[in-house]
Design a binder for these strands. Structure first.
Lengths: 224, 224
DNA sequence: TCGTTGTAGTAGCTTTACTATCATAATAAA
DNA sequence: TTTATTATGATAGTAAAGCTACTACAACGA
């Protein structure tokens, strides 16, 4: 299981694999907490280092910069989601059921199941909601893409787009539809919490269920 | 016309109104060029000041920081879009036609029509595509929202959501649907250009038309 | 026990983000 | 015409961010 959860990380996402040393693990688990607390802009290696009783320079030995660390965390999250989707859809013959299962996993509030030492899936989901778009909204997208940093996200999008094509092979925009919904899946939660005028999802009662309903009906009607 | 295009900017978006002085206008027009060229992260008041032969301190007299300047630009863009939508839909009785007109304006490649001195709508649209999400993806969203900084965007979303309700008063998620589509409208262009695996819109041929088709069919099917 | 390698810490540098002070030119009010 | 106000510019300074060069040391295999 843990081997599965080691994401197929493009070699160059890190300078040195953080999963093989104690310091590396502390960097990962504490960066998740710190980014969630203060946000990615205010997050620095300096702050992280004092928190884990280490030094800035030591963290730079694992990650070239904080942007790469964020990319690592987000990539980890999506590969974890894709692993769970593959697991859950494995014996489902009906593509509609596969689509439902995938959407359930994506929209659900993640619980910490301690699959990997120190990684909080719950906090990671909050980071995905608030920070994931920043991984690609940079002037380096094209280079980062060439390096394969977005492979995990693209793969997830493609997996689900293929369910769509199984349901309706004639639908013209499967990838656009799914990327739109993957983005909306976290955007709508963010809007519900911070800009409620932009959403009909209410913060209080089963926001994640409502989000699922919204997206599932959006997809199924679109591809009918 | 120009009076109309002066966006209803919340007072506190700027320290001093940039529209009333030559320096202010240079700050606006050149910041658009500079942000488009080097991206918002690399953009600094220092770089902007040397470019307009002024000083950092002078720019700080207009905007508290670069984030507020970005907010100003994005707000300007959306109020310009809403103005054009109001203008174009003014005499349309059919809500479907209003929806179409709005979506056309949003998805179209903007042309510079020199409505306002030095402001390039074309470049502004590119900034919206690449940078607009960064206006709200911060730890300050709630405060910024209380200050009314997102009023323009929320108003636009609401205007179009009302067309949706006119078409189908029973539809449950008008605001979620439209905010999803407003976001997708620029995301899909970004994906087409930088992460093509996430989109079926091809960079070359009438990408904006295809984007319109994708979004229009998405909305109409969703609310049927 | 020597040398290689891996790992972490110290110290420094440059840039960013911002503020404070002073000089001066232009404009408006008395 | 003098005076006050405002707008910009010049200069300098601070704290933090982002990054790098250098050094220390422990573990290990030969």
């Amino acid at each position: 299981m843990i081997a599965q959860l080691q994401p197929a990380l493009s070699e160059s996402l890190f300078v040195k694999n953080p999963q093989i040393s104690e310091l590396g693990e502390k960097i990962i688990s504490e960066s998740i907490h710190l980014i969630d607390e203060i946000g990615f802009e205010a997050f620095t290696f300096k702050k992280l280092s004092t928190r884990i009783n280490s030094t800035e320079a030591s963290i730079y030995r694992y990650f070239e910069n904080k942007h790469r660390l964020l990319l690592y965390l987000i990539t980890w999250y999506w590969s974890y989601i894709e692993y769970r989707i593959n697991f859950e859809t494995h014996n489902l013959p009906d593509p509609v059921e596969k689509l439902k299962a995938a959407l359930r996993i994506i929209t659900a509030l993640q619980e910490d199941d301690h699959n990997f030492k120190g990684v909080s899936e719950k906090l990671l989901q909050r980071i995905v909601i608030a920070e994931s778009d920043k991984t690609y909204l940079t002037k380096n997208v094209d280079d980062d893409n060439k390096e394969g940093f977005f492979r995990g996200y693209k793969s997830l999008c493609n997996t689900i787009a293929n369910y769509v094509l199984e349901i309706n092979p004639a639908y013209e925009f499967p990838n656009s539809l799914i990327s739109t919904c993957l983005e909306a899946a976290h955007q709508q939660i963010f809007f519900a919490e911070h800009l409620p005028a932009l959403s009909n999802i209410k913060k209080e009662k089963d926001m994640h269920e409502t989000n699922y309903d919204f997206l599932f009906s959006l997809i199924t009607k679109a591809i009918k």
